[in-house]
Design a protein around this nucleic acid. Sequence first.
DNA 1: GTCTATAAGATGATAGAC
DNA 2: GTCTATCATCTTATAGAC
Lengths: 192, 192
Amino acid sequence: MHSAKSEIIHHAQVMIQKYGFNDFSFRDIAEKVGIKSSSIHYHFPTKADLGRAVAENYRQQFLAELHQAETENDDPVKLLEFFTSQFRRTLLDGHKMCLCGMLSAESQSLPESMTEVIRSFFNDCINWLSALLKRQKDTHNLVYQADSETEAKLFIASLEGGLIIAKGLGDVNVFDKISDVALKKYQRHGSS
Amino acid sequence: MHSAKSEIIHHAQVMIQKYGFNDFSFRDIAEKVGIKSSSIHYHFPTKADLGRAVAENYRQQFLAELHQAETENDDPVKLLEFFTSQFRRTLLDGHKMCLCGMLSAESQSLPESMTEVIRSFFNDCINWLSALLKRQKDTHNLVYQADSETEAKLFIASLEGGLIIAKGLGDVNVFDKISDVALKKYQRHGSS
DNA sequence: GTCTATAAGATGATAGAC
DNA sequence: GTCTATCATCTTATAGAC
């Protein structure tokens, strides 16, 4: 389970989350993995190939963790908190951005093969959150300010933006404050 | 008012907002301005110098526009809408990110001279929004879910994240949907 | 202030040996 | 699969003429 290929994907992912897609090199990855940069081209002919593989791997793993959480707990609020904790974890672990949040900001300088995956990632997240919020709304007869899909978009936007503000202020606690308020809307009575 | 120096700053700003700090070169800027890349070094010795000047210029202009808006209108809700429209404008004009939002995401690959300015930008915005929200709250006897400063952080996070989600989905309308819901919280009765 | 010329290093990528 | 060697290109940056 520590094949060179998976090691390359792992370190590329971390570097994208920390520095962005255009500020790491094949040599940087190679040094981390302990091989030469030319060996990376054997697994991923171009940087676009590597980038797409990293994004697709991230998307699938992220989604798998969401589905796994659903099997362990079916309380919508708890699941929203789990979703939030996934973002919190990347921030605490090396001040990393969400991979797809970083790539989305940079999307105009990325190959189209990568932007396809980013779009899928956000669609996946919004669908998952939307179904959750709708279930919470129907169960407790709540009234939202907008349809569940729009509420889902606002929620994930708050988290992606929360990472940016926390990084900009250089204070990881800011993320917790932001996400706590974003969550409160769905934890209490439904007049909001 | 079209000095080479201001032209350089302008085009550098646009390119950072579109592609990020590490995906444009002095030659790219030089071509846009119509000079040679070596001439840029006369005005800005290093790329870090240019980056800091761009960020500082953005920060001051952004803040000046906020203060200008305050002299024309003192309704907190209208001012929140104005704040929002500033973000909307950058998205509609070339799918650009907020300059400091982009730089904040990339902050781990930036010189410290730039991260200082980014921190100031967000502090400025949060202070401005916070005072606004507090005034709205006191005037109408509203109840927020958190203190005004935290509400301000959530609000700007929603906008920064709104840009990211809209870009990720490749649909600028998504930003409007997100910002509309974020705004509703402060337009209506105060139980939220 | 802007130019030409150039340096010194990094980058993505390929060819061919093992 | 990984290596060495190499390439063409791009990058920031500097020196010196005009």
